[in-house]
Computed example of a mutant assay.
Amino acid sequence: MPEELRLPPVDEADLQDKTLASLAPYRDQEGRIYTIWATLAHHEDALRRFLVFGNHVLGKNTLPLRSRELMILRIATRAQAVYEWDQHVRIARRAGLDDDEIRAAATGAWDGLDELDQVLLAATDSLIDRQGVGDELWARLRSLLSIQQIIDVLYTVGQYLTIATVINTLGVKPEGDLLLDLPAVELAERKDARV
């Protein structure tokens, strides 16, 4: 990630009314638009379209909330996307995940997680590394999930890899102090012994 902010967030006063309406649910407790969305508002038409897809992935996803958040935390760690990490630590905690579970997903120490989460995290790694999954992992996904849920796995990984790319390229900074430190990349490397 660049040391310097490459693209500052757009001032709310400069946004179109229809963009402000789209961003209404994407505000923090003080009513400020989240930095990631204010940054992407440099391309308002694309942002509004992206929010429709993002709303499905974040709000209407068929995966269990806890599992989805573990996947996103894994992506944030693998990509070293600090902003994404911090936002989803907060969401994961609200979803009932404790810090040990959060760190486990991030570092690859998945043995204490349930079977579904281990398979989803293995799929996340495979999708990051290979942009696909092998036959054995596919069979495990099919045994645990519906086709709609598997498609949501693909959408979740794609969405959050996209966001991680934006964060890391544009230098989007966290909005405050990190709740948990982002584990180093070397701790987050995938384990070849996994499915």
Score class of each variant (00 low, 15 high):
Ala188Ile: 08
Leu178Gly: 07
Leu5Asp: 06
Ala21Pro: 05
Arg190Pro: 09
Leu121His: 10
Glu136Val: 12
Asp11Asn: 06
Gln148Val: 12
Pro2Asn: 11
Ile75Asn: 00
Ala104Cys: 01
Ala109Trp: 05
Asp98Asn: 13
Leu63Phe: 02
Val172Met: 03
Arg78Ser: 12
Leu121Thr: 07
Val133Ile: 15
Leu141Ser: 02
Arg142Trp: 13
Arg27Leu: 08
Leu40Gly: 04
Leu97Lys: 03
Asp114Lys: 07
Ala76Asp: 04
Asp45Leu: 12
Glu3Tyr: 12
Glu115Gln: 10
Gly108Ala: 10
Gly171Val: 03
Leu70Trp: 03
Arg142Asn: 11
Ala193Ser: 15
Tyr155His: 14
Val153Glu: 04
Ala46Glu: 14
Arg6Thr: 12
Asp177Thr: 09
Gln149Ser: 04
Thr156Cys: 01
Val172Pro: 00
Thr19Leu: 11
Leu170Ile: 05
Asp11Gly: 06
Leu58His: 12
Glu3Ser: 06
Leu187Trp: 13
Ala81Asn: 06
Tyr26Trp: 15
Val119Ser: 04
Lys173Asn: 03
Glu12Met: 04
Gly54Glu: 14
Leu65Trp: 05
Glu101Met: 11
Gln87Asp: 07
Thr165His: 14
Tyr34His: 14
Ile167Gly: 00
His88Trp: 01
Leu58Met: 14
Ala164Phe: 11
Ile72Glu: 02
His42Asp: 11
Arg142Ile: 10
Gln87Met: 09
Ala76Gly: 10
Leu97Ile: 05
Val153Ser: 01
Ala76Tyr: 02
Leu120Ile: 05
Pro9Glu: 06
Ala21Ser: 14
Asn168Arg: 10
Ala122Ser: 10
Val57Pro: 00
Ile72Cys: 02
Ile151Val: 13
Ala24Gly: 04
Ile151Gly: 10
Ile102Pro: 00
Gln87His: 09
Met71Lys: 00
Thr156Tyr: 00
Leu154Asp: 12
Leu7Arg: 07
Gln159Cys: 10
Arg93Asn: 06
Asn61Ala: 01
Asn168Gln: 05
Ala79Lys: 10
Val157His: 02
Leu154Met: 13
Glu115Arg: 14
Asp98Ile: 03
Arg68Asp: 08
Asp192Val: 14
Gln80Met: 04
Asp86Glu: 02
Asp181Cys: 02
Ile91Val: 15
Val52Arg: 14
Arg48Ala: 08
Glu186Cys: 06
Ile167Lys: 00
Leu113Val: 08
Trp138Arg: 13
Asp152Lys: 04
Asp11Pro: 01
Gly54Gln: 13
Leu51Phe: 05
Ala92Gly: 15
Gln16Arg: 15
Gly54Trp: 11
Ile150Thr: 07
Tyr26Glu: 12
Val10Phe: 06
Asp28Trp: 02
Asp86Phe: 01
Ala38Tyr: 04
Leu70Asp: 01
Glu175Tyr: 08
Thr165Asn: 10
Ser146Ala: 08
Met1Val: 05
Thr62Tyr: 12
Ser146Leu: 11
Leu120Arg: 01
